[in-house]
Nucleic acid binder design. Structure first.
Lengths: 251, 251
DNA sequence: GAAACGTTATTTGTCTGAGTAATGCGGTCC
DNA sequence: GGACCGCATTACTCAGACAAATAACGTTTC
C-alpha cells in the first residue's frame, strides 16, 4: 500500500520535480499510460465519476487533469460519448511534457531515431544562424559555460548545468523563438534519458572537444563550420543514447 | 437544406470553431491576451475568485482554463503568489493553439519571419525524406489531391481541403511523427492567416505548378529535387503572406 | 544585531453535491 | 424509408466549504 509520502520541501539538487499537485500527478500518470500505448487511440476512458472514484480523488481534480491532457492533444471529451484517446496524429508530440512522458517509459527505437532525425535537421541550422547573429555577450556566456564544463565534468550536476547554459546561449543567439522552444524542449527530454542510461555504460567519448568546435565556429561567425560541428555533436549524442540502449548499430 | 448532410445541425458556416465550451473560450481569450502582450510575462493575474467573478463564470470553469494555459506553458500558478504569466521562453510556441492565437491577433513581422525561417529549415528536409520513403499509396493520394487542387482552386473550400490532403500525405510519407506534428501545426496556423489576408490582395502566383514539381520529385524518389521544390514552395508562401501584409492599408 | 524559528494571512488546491447542456440512440409518425 | 421527437447518458457548469502551501511578518535565541 503506497500512501503518499509526506514530501516536504525536498532540497535535493534537482529542480526536476516540482512537487506536482494531485491534478498534475494524475495528468502525468494518464499521459504516460496513453503515450506508452496502454490506452490506445479511440479508446474511451472511464466516466468522470467512475475514474475519479477509482483514483480516490474528486471529480474536480480529475477533470483538471483531463483539461491538461486535452490541451496537449492527447484526449478529446464530448458529452454523451465520453472522453477518448485522440489519434496519434493529433498528439502534440513536441510538447515538453509529452516528450518527457514518452521517454520516461521506453521510447521505442523508431521514435528515438525519429527524434534524432529532427534534431539532425534543426540543430545544425540553428547553430549556423547563431554563428551569423551572435552578439559578444553570447560569446562571453558560452565561453564561461564551456569553462564550467571543462572544470567539472558532465558526470556531475554542475557540469550539466553549464552544458545547458551553453546550449541555451547558443539557441538564444539564433534569435528565433520557435527554434528556442523546439530545441530546448527536445534537448531536455533527451538529456534526461541519456543521463539515466549512462549509469550502465559510463564509457563514452568526451563531448567537450565537440562543444569547443561549435563554440569556435560560432565565435568566428563561420556558419558552415558551425553547422558541421553541431551536426557531429548530434551524431555523437545519438551514438551515446542508442549505444547505451543496445549494442547494435542502426541503419 | 440543399445538401443532404448527415451533420445534424450546423447553422454556422464556420466549421472551424468546434463550439468551445466556457473553459475553452476563456482559455482562448486569456491566451490571446497573453501572446499579444496585453498581459506581460511576470505579471500576476487577478485571483481566481475575482477573475471568475468578473467574467461571470464559476471558479471551476476559470480554473480549468488556467490549467489549459499552464499545460501550454503560458502561465504558472502557486499558492499565495497567485497565477502569473510565464517568461516567453517557457511558452510552447509550437503548440497549435498558441500558434493560432499568435496569428489571430497580429503576428508581428519578426515572429512571422522566424516562423518561416523554421519552415524553410524543416519542410524541405521533410520533403526529401518523403521522397526516399514514400509508398505507392502515398503517391496515389498525393496525385488525387493534386487533381483536386487543379479542378477547383485554392480560392474555394474544396481546393484547400485537397491542398491539406496533399501536404498531409507528403508529411506522412516522411514517416516521422515529430515532423508531422511540427509541420502540420505550423502549416495550419499560417494557412489560416494567409486565407484571411488574401481577401485583400487576391492576386498571387499560381501555386499549383510548384506543388506539381514537389510531387514529381517525390514520386521519382529524387530527394534533392524534392528539397529544392519544397524550398521554393515555402519561399512563395512567405511572399504571399508578407505581400498581403504590406499591401493592406494600415489601420 | 543577525539568524533561526514560529505565526499568520492570502492564494491556490481539493472536495462535495447539485443542476444544466449537449448529443447519440431508438422510437414514432407520416 | 426518412424526418422528427423524446430519452438516457455524459460531460459541463455552478456554488460553497475546507485543506494545503507559502510569502511576509514577527519573535525568539544566541
Amino acid at each position: 500500500m503506497a500512501t503518499k509520502a509526506k514530501q516536504t520541501r525536498e532540497p535535493d539538487a534537482g529542480a526536476r520535480r516540482k512537487a506536482l499537485r494531485i491534478h498534475g500527478t494524475i495528468a502525468r500518470d494518464l499521459g504516460i499510460h496513453i503515450v506508452s500505448g496502454h490506452y490506445k487511440p479511440g479508446e474511451v476512458l472511464n466516466g468522470e465519476i467512475a475514474a475519479s472514484g477509482r483514483l480516490h480523488v474528486s471529480r474536480t481534480a480529475y477533470r483538471e487533469a483531463l483539461r491538461m491532457l486535452a490541451a496537449k492533444g492527447l484526449v478529446e471529451s464530448r458529452p454523451k460519448t465520453g472522453t477518448r484517446v485522440s489519434q496519434r496524429e493529433k498528439w502534440h508530440m513536441l510538447d515538453p511534457d509529452v516528450l518527457s512522458w514518452i521517454f520516461e517509459f521506453e521510447p521505442g527505437e523508431d521514435l528515438l531515431n525519429s527524434l534524432f532525425e529532427l534534431r539532425k535537421i534543426v540543430e545544425p541550422e540553428a547553430a549556423a544562424l547563431a554563428a551569423e547573429r551572435r552578439t559578444d555577450e553570447h560569446i562571453a556566456i558560452m565561453a564561461e559555460a564551456l569553462d564550467g564544463m571543462e572544470e567539472h565534468s558532465l558526470a556531475v550536476e554542475e557540469g550539466r548545468i553549464a552544458d545547458q547554459k551553453f546550449h541555451a546561449a547558443l539557441l538564444d543567439a539564433s534569435n528565433n523563438p520557435f527554434l528556442v522552444t523546439l530545441t530546448s524542449g527536445v534537448q531536455a527530454a533527451v538529456a534526461w534519458t541519456t543521463i539515466f542510461k549512462q549509469r550502465h555504460s559510463p564509457l563514452r567519448r568526451d563531448p567537450i572537444p565537440d562543444h569547443r568546435r561549435v563554440f569556435e565556429a560560432v565565435a568566428a561567425g563561420d556558419a558552415k563550420a558551425a553547422h558541421k560541428a553541431m551536426s557531429d555533436l548530434v551524431d555523437m549524442a545519438l551514438l551515446d543514447t542508442t549505444g547505451a540502449r543496445i549494442g547494435k548499430a542502426g541503419r
